[in-house]
Structures are given as C-alpha cells and as structure tokens.
Design a protein around this nucleic acid. Structure first.
Lengths: 106, 106
DNA sequence: ATGGTATTTCCATGAAACTCGAACAAGCAG
DNA sequence: CTGCTTGTTCGAGTTTCATGGAAATACCAT
C-alpha cells in the first residue's frame, strides 16, 4: 500500500530538525555531507542526529556512503520525486486544481 | 519561518489515518464531505476523527463549512500547492535533479 | 597491537500523539 | 420547550517520539 509508505516519508519530513537536515543535504547536492559536518551545522547532539538520520534512511529519503572513517550522507532525489508525485496525484485526482498544477509558471 | 510551517503540514499528513482522510476529501472535490460520512467511511471513532480533522484544519490543509446540523469538510488545494512547491524548491535548490524536475513534461 | 577519530547503539526521561467512550454543545423539527 | 441528529470536548490509557550522555563499534595510521 503506497499510502502507508507516503505517510512514513511525510512523517519523516514532518519534524523541523529532520526537514532542516534534509534540506541541508539537498542543498549539498551530489557531493553530500559527512555526519560530523551536519552535527556541527545543526548544533545537536551526535546521538540525536544519528537517530534522525536513521529515520530518514529507513524511509529511503537519504543514503549513506562510507569514505574511510567518515560517512557521507546524500539526499535521495528520486524518492522525493515520487513523494511529490504522490501528493500531486492525490491533490489532483479529480479535483479542480489540475489547471493550477499544470505549469508552475502561472 | 516557512520551514516550520511546512514541517507542521508534513507532520499533519504524515499519519496514515490523516493522509487517508485528506485523500478522501481531495477525491470528493469541491463538493466536500460531511464529518459523519468521513467517520463511517474511515471506520474510526467520531472523537478520533474530530481530533485528526482539527489538526488538518489547524495547518490549513482542510476547511469546514456548516450546513444546518452537518459540517462539510473540504481539502484546501492552494495550501497543498504551496507545500508541494516548497518541497520541489528544497529538492531542486541547487541540486542535480533540476534536470529531472526542470520540465515536468521534459 | 595502540591510539585516535567518526558514528552508532544503549539507556533513560519528559513530552506529545493516538485512541476511544462518555458527557456536552449546536442546530433543526414538532 | 422537547426531542433528535450531528459533531466536539473532556478524561484517561497506551504508545511513540525527541533528546542526549555514556559506552560500544568501525575504520585508519603508526
């Protein structure tokens, strides 16, 4: 059931700390960011960050890659694309807003 | 701070019951649905539904309108549009996925 | 092996969420 | 006013979340 998964991802992003964390990773682009950097950047305890990171990873929104002793974290864009797609779908299933979503330009 | 608000909305949608509820309202379109209908449709206690509904209303995702003794609930599309816009923005701030998102149509 | 840095896991705690039944309030019909 | 339908608020119990300190693990350098 896709709805369950979407809810999990939304819940994962529905926390200011995690949303901020995710945004930082998104802004970092393909380069990603090491956990230590994120920890200092966000100013939270390492264990707290690890927990949040774990949650994002479980939902697939973030991936990690080991480089020697440091772990590089990256935003997993395709997952976000799917999520946005799901929301757009739900929103415009048979609603009037299909004209609004067409082109962001408007 | 927009991030805070986005987090609140995401959190509101990040619960299977509420996401399902919201979806039902979206599918209902402009007609909306009375609370009683939603309650039977979702099969949860009236008080539980009222609680969830309240949360969605607080974030602006849902609106209510009274019609005699029944309350009609409707999805508030523009808010969802904003939220999707925020996510898309964050996702493509300066990331590589701008090629992916760039043209929905491609 | 020893030591050092980088992260996670373990554990505890306070706060908040989810759920529901029961009592209450709002609004219409006779 | 009385009664009925609709929905919310109150009270309470169980579960989950958020947070961080301390200990454990992973990995590299020497």
């Amino acid at each position: 059931m896709k709805l369950e998964q979407a809810a999990k991802q939304l819940e994962a992003l529905g926390n200011p700390t995690r949303l901020n964390l995710y945004r930082t990773l998104v802004r970092a682009g393909a380069a990603g960011r090491p956990v230590g950097y994120l920890q200092e950047s966000l100013g939270i305890a390492a264990s707290t960050l690890s927990h949040h990171l774990h949650r994002l990873i479980l939902t697939g929104l973030v991936t990690q890659e080991r480089q020697a002793t440091t772990l590089i974290c990256r935003a997993n864009y395709p997952i976000m694309q799917d999520l946005i797609g799901f929301l757009a779908d739900e929103c415009c299933a048979d609603a009037t807003c299909n004209s609004a979503t067409g082109e962001a330009a408007a």
